[in-house]
Simulated scan of single mutants.
Amino acid sequence: MREKILVTDAAKGVTRIVKNRPAVLEEVEKLLLIWIEEKQRAGDTVSEAVICEKAKALHADLIREQPGTSGEPEVFKASRGWFERFKTRSGIHSVARHGEAASSDVPAAEDFAAEFLEVVSSKELRDIYVTPR
């Protein structure tokens, strides 16, 4: 079907834009998805910045391994826009954990919740004060 659409004549004044992504970028994204899955299984935190750095490193390695690429290397920036499109293309949406969510201490929070319930249950209702809004 796509071939039929591409061979049809476009209306006068309409420009057809077809982007062919380099095969190396496809390979980078495949390897990156595998790496992200491994990191998540290990319980490691992966943020947008870490993913972008890994993507740049993978791209540089793949370019270096390609035969006949002794000229000026292709530049891959792994920008925020690329990252957003990568998430859309790959179907991932909750990979990037960063900031306070990534640095939270889950065991300490669970201990606090248990301690808080103990304190609240030991007090009588008259000992609990609520500030009016």
Rank of each mutant, 00 (worst) to 15 (best):
D111K: 09
F112C: 08
N20P: 12
A42G: 02
S90D: 00
I36S: 01
K77V: 11
K56Q: 15
R64P: 00
V106N: 00
L58C: 11
S121Y: 05
E72Q: 11
E26A: 08
A114R: 15
I5S: 05
E72P: 02
V14W: 02
E26I: 15
A55N: 04
R80S: 12
E29N: 10
C52W: 05
K39Y: 07
G71L: 05
P107M: 08
V28L: 03
E100M: 07
A109T: 14
V120R: 06
K30Y: 09
L32H: 05
A101N: 13
E115M: 14
D61C: 07
G13Y: 05
L58G: 08
A60R: 15
E74Q: 10
A109D: 04
S121R: 12
A10Q: 07
H98E: 13
D44H: 10
S94V: 04
K54N: 01
V24G: 11
K39F: 02
A23L: 12
K4Y: 04
V24K: 14
F83E: 00
E53C: 00
A42R: 11
V18E: 03
E29W: 03
R85E: 13
G81S: 09
C52V: 07
P22A: 06
E84R: 15
W35T: 02
E53F: 02
K39I: 01
L31T: 08
E65R: 15
K54Y: 02
V24L: 15
K30L: 14
K4L: 07
A42L: 11
F76V: 06
L125M: 09
R21T: 10
H93F: 12
L6R: 14
H93Q: 10
F116W: 09
R97A: 06
L62E: 08
P22V: 00
E3F: 07
A60C: 06
K30Q: 12
A114F: 06
L58P: 12
V75P: 08
W82P: 00
A49T: 13
R97Y: 05
A60M: 10
A42Y: 06
W82M: 02
Q40C: 05
A114K: 15
V28I: 02
K56W: 09
G43A: 11
E27F: 00
I128M: 01
P107A: 11
D105C: 14
A113N: 08
R64I: 04
K30I: 12
D9A: 08
P22H: 10
I17H: 05
K19T: 11
S103H: 13
L58N: 07
A108G: 00
E100R: 12
D61R: 12
T131Y: 03
S90V: 14
A60G: 05
S121I: 08
Q66Y: 02
V46L: 11
G13M: 05
R97E: 12
H93A: 07
D127H: 14
V18T: 07
A23M: 06
V130W: 08
I63N: 09
